Simulated scan of single mutants.
Amino acid sequence: MRVLQMIFSRNFRGAERHVADLANGQAGRHDLLLLLRADHEEDGASIMRALDPAVPVRLVRPSLLGWDSWRAARAFRPDVVHSHGGRAGKVAGAWLRRWPRLATMHLDYRPAWYRRQDALVAPTGWQAEDARAKGFTGSIHRLDLWVKPALPLTPGQVAALRAELGAGPGTALLGAVGALIPVKGFDTLVQAFRRLPGDHLRLALVGQGPQRAELESLAQGDPRIRFAGFRDDAASLYQAFDLFAFPSREEPFGLVALEALDAGLPVVATDTKGARATLGPGGLVPPGDVDALTSALAARLSQSLTKHRPDLSRWSMERHLVGLDEVYQGLRRSD
Protein backbone atom coordinates (compact mmCIF):
# COMPACT_ATOMS: atom_id res chain seq x y z
CA MET A 1 0.00 0.00 0.00
CA ARG A 2 1.16 3.53 -0.78
CA VAL A 3 1.12 5.60 2.43
CA LEU A 4 1.79 9.34 2.60
CA GLN A 5 2.77 10.44 6.12
CA MET A 6 2.80 14.16 7.00
CA ILE A 7 3.99 16.25 9.95
CA PHE A 8 4.76 19.96 9.70
CA SER A 9 5.96 20.94 13.18
CA ARG A 10 9.21 22.75 13.95
CA ASN A 11 10.65 20.76 16.84
CA PHE A 12 11.38 17.22 17.95
CA ARG A 13 9.10 16.20 20.81
CA GLY A 14 6.62 13.41 21.46
CA ALA A 15 4.62 13.63 18.24
CA GLU A 16 7.75 13.83 16.13
CA ARG A 17 9.28 10.82 17.90
CA HIS A 18 6.04 8.94 17.25
CA VAL A 19 6.14 9.77 13.52
CA ALA A 20 9.81 8.81 13.24
CA ASP A 21 9.18 5.43 14.89
CA LEU A 22 6.05 4.91 12.79
CA ALA A 23 7.82 5.73 9.53
CA ASN A 24 10.71 3.44 10.43
CA GLY A 25 8.27 0.64 11.18
CA GLN A 26 6.24 1.13 8.02
CA ALA A 27 9.18 1.48 5.64
CA GLY A 28 9.48 -2.29 5.30
CA ARG A 29 5.79 -3.03 4.93
CA HIS A 30 4.45 -0.19 2.73
CA ASP A 31 5.51 2.06 -0.10
CA LEU A 32 6.03 5.11 2.07
CA LEU A 33 6.69 8.83 1.65
CA LEU A 34 7.13 11.23 4.58
CA LEU A 35 6.51 14.96 4.10
CA LEU A 36 8.32 17.41 6.41
CA ARG A 37 8.57 21.17 6.32
CA ALA A 38 11.99 22.31 5.16
CA ASP A 39 12.66 24.27 8.37
CA HIS A 40 11.65 21.46 10.74
CA GLU A 41 14.86 21.59 12.81
CA GLU A 42 14.80 23.61 16.05
CA ASP A 43 17.51 24.09 18.69
CA GLY A 44 19.61 21.43 16.97
CA ALA A 45 16.88 18.78 17.30
CA SER A 46 15.65 17.19 14.09
CA ILE A 47 13.33 14.31 13.27
CA MET A 48 15.72 13.39 10.47
CA ARG A 49 18.26 12.11 13.01
CA ALA A 50 15.71 9.56 14.22
CA LEU A 51 14.70 8.29 10.78
CA ASP A 52 16.00 5.12 9.20
CA PRO A 53 17.80 5.76 5.88
CA ALA A 54 15.15 3.56 4.23
CA VAL A 55 12.44 6.18 4.89
CA PRO A 56 11.91 8.40 1.81
CA VAL A 57 11.50 12.06 2.79
CA ARG A 58 10.35 15.06 0.82
CA LEU A 59 10.77 18.57 2.23
CA VAL A 60 8.07 21.14 1.52
CA ARG A 61 8.42 24.90 1.63
CA PRO A 62 6.89 26.48 4.76
CA SER A 63 5.27 29.25 2.73
CA LEU A 64 3.74 26.72 0.31
CA LEU A 65 2.80 23.77 2.53
CA GLY A 66 -0.49 23.14 0.73
CA TRP A 67 0.77 23.53 -2.83
CA ASP A 68 3.92 21.48 -2.30
CA SER A 69 1.98 18.76 -0.46
CA TRP A 70 -0.55 18.53 -3.29
CA ARG A 71 2.22 18.24 -5.87
CA ALA A 72 3.96 15.54 -3.81
CA ALA A 73 0.71 13.60 -3.39
CA ARG A 74 -0.17 13.88 -7.07
CA ALA A 75 3.23 12.44 -8.01
CA PHE A 76 3.20 9.75 -5.31
CA ARG A 77 -0.45 8.67 -5.79
CA PRO A 78 -1.09 7.48 -2.20
CA ASP A 79 -3.75 4.99 -1.17
CA VAL A 80 -4.07 6.85 2.12
CA VAL A 81 -2.86 10.17 3.55
CA HIS A 82 -1.94 9.99 7.25
CA SER A 83 -1.38 13.34 8.97
CA HIS A 84 -0.05 14.31 12.41
CA GLY A 85 -0.54 17.64 14.14
CA GLY A 86 -2.46 20.79 13.33
CA ARG A 87 -0.64 22.11 10.28
CA ALA A 88 -0.53 18.75 8.52
CA GLY A 89 -4.14 18.02 9.43
CA LYS A 90 -5.34 21.31 7.99
CA VAL A 91 -3.27 20.91 4.83
CA ALA A 92 -4.55 17.37 4.28
CA GLY A 93 -8.13 18.45 4.82
CA ALA A 94 -7.92 21.46 2.50
CA TRP A 95 -5.53 20.31 -0.24
CA LEU A 96 -5.54 16.50 -0.35
CA ARG A 97 -9.25 15.69 -0.36
CA ARG A 98 -8.83 13.55 -3.48
CA TRP A 99 -7.35 10.79 -1.30
CA PRO A 100 -8.59 8.96 1.83
CA ARG A 101 -7.42 10.90 4.90
CA LEU A 102 -6.57 9.73 8.40
CA ALA A 103 -5.11 11.72 11.30
CA THR A 104 -3.57 10.58 14.57
CA MET A 105 -4.62 12.74 17.51
CA HIS A 106 -1.60 13.79 19.54
CA LEU A 107 -3.58 16.27 21.66
CA ASP A 108 -7.29 16.89 22.12
CA TYR A 109 -9.83 17.09 19.29
CA ARG A 110 -9.67 20.40 17.43
CA PRO A 111 -12.20 20.84 14.60
CA ALA A 112 -9.92 23.07 12.54
CA TRP A 113 -7.36 20.26 12.46
CA TYR A 114 -9.53 17.20 12.10
CA ARG A 115 -13.07 17.87 10.85
CA ARG A 116 -12.14 17.17 7.21
CA GLN A 117 -10.50 13.83 7.97
CA ASP A 118 -12.24 10.61 7.01
CA ALA A 119 -10.99 8.84 10.13
CA LEU A 120 -9.05 9.44 13.32
CA VAL A 121 -6.67 7.34 15.40
CA ALA A 122 -7.18 8.00 19.11
CA PRO A 123 -4.29 6.71 21.26
CA THR A 124 -6.40 7.01 24.43
CA GLY A 125 -10.02 6.59 25.38
CA TRP A 126 -10.40 10.20 26.48
CA GLN A 127 -9.31 11.42 23.04
CA ALA A 128 -11.86 9.21 21.30
CA GLU A 129 -14.60 10.50 23.61
CA ASP A 130 -13.46 14.09 23.09
CA ALA A 131 -13.62 13.77 19.29
CA ARG A 132 -17.10 12.28 19.31
CA ALA A 133 -18.39 14.79 21.88
CA LYS A 134 -17.12 17.68 19.77
CA GLY A 135 -18.93 16.50 16.67
CA PHE A 136 -16.53 14.38 14.60
CA THR A 137 -18.67 12.19 12.34
CA GLY A 138 -16.04 9.96 10.72
CA SER A 139 -14.70 6.70 12.08
CA ILE A 140 -12.58 6.75 15.25
CA HIS A 141 -10.11 3.95 15.91
CA ARG A 142 -8.64 3.32 19.36
CA LEU A 143 -5.06 2.18 18.92
CA ASP A 144 -2.63 2.14 21.83
CA LEU A 145 0.75 3.71 21.18
CA TRP A 146 3.93 1.78 21.87
CA VAL A 147 7.15 1.77 23.81
CA LYS A 148 10.29 0.50 22.13
CA PRO A 149 12.29 -1.66 24.55
CA ALA A 150 15.69 -0.09 25.06
CA LEU A 151 18.83 -2.12 24.46
CA PRO A 152 20.26 -3.12 27.86
CA LEU A 153 23.44 -1.28 28.85
CA THR A 154 26.39 -2.88 30.56
CA PRO A 155 27.09 -1.93 34.20
CA GLY A 156 30.08 0.04 32.98
CA GLN A 157 27.96 2.01 30.50
CA VAL A 158 25.38 2.75 33.19
CA ALA A 159 28.10 3.93 35.58
CA ALA A 160 29.54 6.19 32.90
CA LEU A 161 26.16 7.78 32.22
CA ARG A 162 25.54 8.29 35.92
CA ALA A 163 28.91 9.95 36.34
CA GLU A 164 28.13 12.23 33.39
CA LEU A 165 24.93 13.26 35.17
CA GLY A 166 26.75 13.89 38.45
CA ALA A 167 25.71 10.69 40.21
CA GLY A 168 28.36 8.44 41.69
CA PRO A 169 28.12 5.36 43.93
CA GLY A 170 25.73 5.83 46.83
CA THR A 171 23.69 8.59 45.19
CA ALA A 172 20.02 8.46 44.20
CA LEU A 173 19.47 9.93 40.74
CA LEU A 174 16.04 11.37 39.96
CA GLY A 175 15.46 11.84 36.24
CA ALA A 176 12.96 13.73 34.09
CA VAL A 177 12.80 13.83 30.29
CA GLY A 178 10.94 16.25 28.04
CA ALA A 179 10.84 19.63 26.36
CA LEU A 180 11.66 22.50 28.71
CA ILE A 181 8.33 24.28 28.35
CA PRO A 182 5.87 25.35 31.09
CA VAL A 183 3.28 22.65 30.44
CA LYS A 184 5.83 19.95 31.38
CA GLY A 185 5.94 21.20 34.96
CA PHE A 186 9.71 21.12 35.41
CA ASP A 187 9.55 24.35 37.41
CA THR A 188 7.40 22.54 39.96
CA LEU A 189 9.86 19.66 39.96
CA VAL A 190 12.91 21.87 40.52
CA GLN A 191 11.22 23.67 43.40
CA ALA A 192 10.10 20.39 44.96
CA PHE A 193 13.53 18.80 44.60
CA ARG A 194 15.25 21.76 46.22
CA ARG A 195 13.17 21.14 49.35
CA LEU A 196 14.51 17.59 49.67
CA PRO A 197 17.49 17.34 52.03
CA GLY A 198 20.45 15.12 51.31
CA ASP A 199 23.79 15.42 49.54
CA HIS A 200 23.19 11.93 48.16
CA LEU A 201 20.35 13.15 45.90
CA ARG A 202 20.73 14.28 42.29
CA LEU A 203 18.26 15.57 39.70
CA ALA A 204 18.89 15.34 35.94
CA LEU A 205 16.65 17.21 33.51
CA VAL A 206 17.00 15.85 29.98
CA GLY A 207 15.66 18.07 27.22
CA GLN A 208 15.86 21.48 25.63
CA GLY A 209 13.43 24.33 25.24
CA PRO A 210 12.62 28.00 25.78
CA GLN A 211 12.12 27.62 29.55
CA ARG A 212 15.70 26.51 30.21
CA ALA A 213 16.97 29.89 31.44
CA GLU A 214 14.06 30.19 33.87
CA LEU A 215 14.66 26.68 35.19
CA GLU A 216 18.38 27.29 35.56
CA SER A 217 17.54 30.38 37.59
CA LEU A 218 15.26 28.33 39.85
CA ALA A 219 18.03 25.73 40.27
CA GLN A 220 20.76 28.30 40.95
CA GLY A 221 22.68 27.52 44.12
CA ASP A 222 21.81 23.81 44.19
CA PRO A 223 24.73 21.87 42.66
CA ARG A 224 22.72 18.64 42.85
CA ILE A 225 20.68 19.67 39.79
CA ARG A 226 22.07 18.94 36.33
CA PHE A 227 20.71 20.12 32.95
CA ALA A 228 21.64 17.52 30.32
CA GLY A 229 20.14 19.29 27.28
CA PHE A 230 18.78 17.46 24.24
CA ARG A 231 20.20 13.97 23.95
CA ASP A 232 19.99 11.53 21.05
CA ASP A 233 20.59 8.77 23.62
CA ALA A 234 17.73 9.85 25.90
CA ALA A 235 16.18 6.36 25.70
CA SER A 236 19.34 4.91 27.25
CA LEU A 237 19.53 7.47 30.05
CA TYR A 238 16.54 5.93 31.85
CA GLN A 239 18.77 3.01 32.78
CA ALA A 240 21.01 5.44 34.69
CA PHE A 241 18.13 6.82 36.80
CA ASP A 242 16.93 5.43 40.12
CA LEU A 243 13.57 7.22 40.11
CA PHE A 244 11.59 9.02 37.40
CA ALA A 245 9.49 12.18 37.72
CA PHE A 246 6.59 12.97 35.38
CA PRO A 247 5.41 16.39 36.64
CA SER A 248 3.37 17.72 33.70
CA ARG A 249 0.55 20.20 34.14
CA GLU A 250 -1.20 18.67 31.11
CA GLU A 251 -0.25 15.55 29.17
CA PRO A 252 -2.32 13.80 26.48
CA PHE A 253 -0.39 10.53 26.64
CA GLY A 254 3.09 10.49 28.12
CA LEU A 255 5.47 8.19 26.30
CA VAL A 256 8.22 9.07 28.78
CA ALA A 257 6.30 7.28 31.54
CA LEU A 258 6.28 4.07 29.49
CA GLU A 259 9.98 4.45 28.74
CA ALA A 260 10.62 4.79 32.46
CA LEU A 261 8.61 1.64 33.14
CA ASP A 262 10.58 -0.15 30.41
CA ALA A 263 13.73 0.67 32.39
CA GLY A 264 12.09 -0.74 35.53
CA LEU A 265 11.92 2.62 37.27
CA PRO A 266 9.46 3.69 39.95
CA VAL A 267 7.56 6.76 38.74
CA VAL A 268 6.23 9.78 40.62
CA ALA A 269 3.65 11.52 38.42
CA THR A 270 1.08 14.28 38.45
CA ASP A 271 -2.58 13.63 37.75
CA THR A 272 -2.91 14.22 34.01
CA LYS A 273 -4.90 12.38 31.36
CA GLY A 274 -1.67 10.94 29.99
CA ALA A 275 -0.51 9.65 33.36
CA ARG A 276 -3.89 8.02 33.95
CA ALA A 277 -3.71 6.37 30.52
CA THR A 278 -0.23 4.93 31.04
CA LEU A 279 0.14 4.51 34.81
CA GLY A 280 -3.44 4.21 36.04
CA PRO A 281 -5.28 6.56 38.42
CA GLY A 282 -3.61 5.60 41.70
CA GLY A 283 -0.91 7.53 43.52
CA LEU A 284 -0.92 10.63 41.31
CA VAL A 285 -0.36 14.11 42.74
CA PRO A 286 -2.08 17.38 41.77
CA PRO A 287 -0.31 19.20 38.89
CA GLY A 288 1.57 22.34 39.83
CA ASP A 289 1.46 21.60 43.57
CA VAL A 290 5.02 21.95 44.91
CA ASP A 291 4.10 20.75 48.40
CA ALA A 292 2.35 17.61 47.10
CA LEU A 293 5.17 16.76 44.73
CA THR A 294 7.78 17.27 47.45
CA SER A 295 5.90 14.90 49.75
CA ALA A 296 5.46 12.29 47.01
CA LEU A 297 9.15 12.37 46.08
CA ALA A 298 10.25 12.20 49.72
CA ALA A 299 7.94 9.26 50.36
CA ARG A 300 9.17 7.33 47.32
CA LEU A 301 12.83 8.06 48.06
CA SER A 302 12.37 6.69 51.57
CA GLN A 303 11.41 3.32 50.08
CA SER A 304 13.45 0.78 48.16
CA LEU A 305 14.34 1.93 44.64
CA THR A 306 14.75 -1.61 43.32
CA LYS A 307 13.98 -1.75 39.61
CA HIS A 308 11.17 -3.92 38.25
CA ARG A 309 9.96 -3.97 34.66
CA PRO A 310 6.18 -4.59 34.41
CA ASP A 311 4.40 -6.34 31.55
CA LEU A 312 4.29 -3.81 28.72
CA SER A 313 3.03 -6.15 25.98
CA ARG A 314 -0.08 -4.00 25.55
CA TRP A 315 2.14 -1.16 24.30
CA SER A 316 3.46 -3.05 21.28
CA MET A 317 4.51 -1.39 18.05
CA GLU A 318 3.60 -4.47 16.05
CA ARG A 319 0.07 -4.38 17.45
CA HIS A 320 -0.21 -0.73 16.47
CA LEU A 321 1.12 -1.34 12.96
CA VAL A 322 -1.29 -4.23 12.39
CA GLY A 323 -4.17 -2.10 13.66
CA LEU A 324 -3.17 0.75 11.35
CA ASP A 325 -3.01 -1.62 8.39
CA GLU A 326 -6.63 -2.60 9.09
CA VAL A 327 -7.65 1.06 9.27
CA TYR A 328 -5.86 1.78 5.99
CA GLN A 329 -7.57 -1.14 4.28
CA GLY A 330 -10.96 0.05 5.50
CA LEU A 331 -10.34 3.55 4.17
CA ARG A 332 -9.16 2.17 0.87
CA ARG A 333 -12.29 0.01 0.48
CA SER A 334 -14.63 2.89 1.34
CA ASP A 335 -12.94 5.34 -1.04
Rank of each mutant, 00 (worst) to 15 (best):
F12L: 14
R13Q: 14
R13L: 05
A27I: 08
R29W: 04
H30Q: 15
D31C: 06
L33H: 11
D39T: 08
H40R: 13
G44P: 09
I47P: 01
M48L: 15
P56A: 10
R58F: 00
P62D: 15
P62Y: 11
S63V: 03
G66K: 01
S69C: 11
A72T: 06
R74M: 08
F76C: 05
D79I: 02
V80I: 13
M105P: 06
Q117M: 15
S139W: 03
L151S: 14
R162D: 11
A163W: 13
P169G: 05
G175M: 01
A176E: 00
V177W: 04
A179S: 13
I181Y: 10
G185K: 02
T188C: 13
L189Y: 02
V190N: 06
Q191H: 09
Q191E: 15
A192I: 04
L196D: 04
H200N: 10
L205C: 05
S217L: 11
I225D: 01
F227W: 10
A228S: 08
S236R: 14
A240L: 01
A240T: 03
F246H: 14
R249Y: 04
R249K: 11
F253M: 07
A257N: 07
D262M: 02
A263C: 09
V267I: 08
T272K: 04
A275Y: 02
L279N: 03
P281D: 07
G283E: 09
G283P: 04
V285S: 08
G288N: 10
S295N: 11
A296H: 03
V322Y: 08
Y328H: 12
G330S: 13
G330K: 12
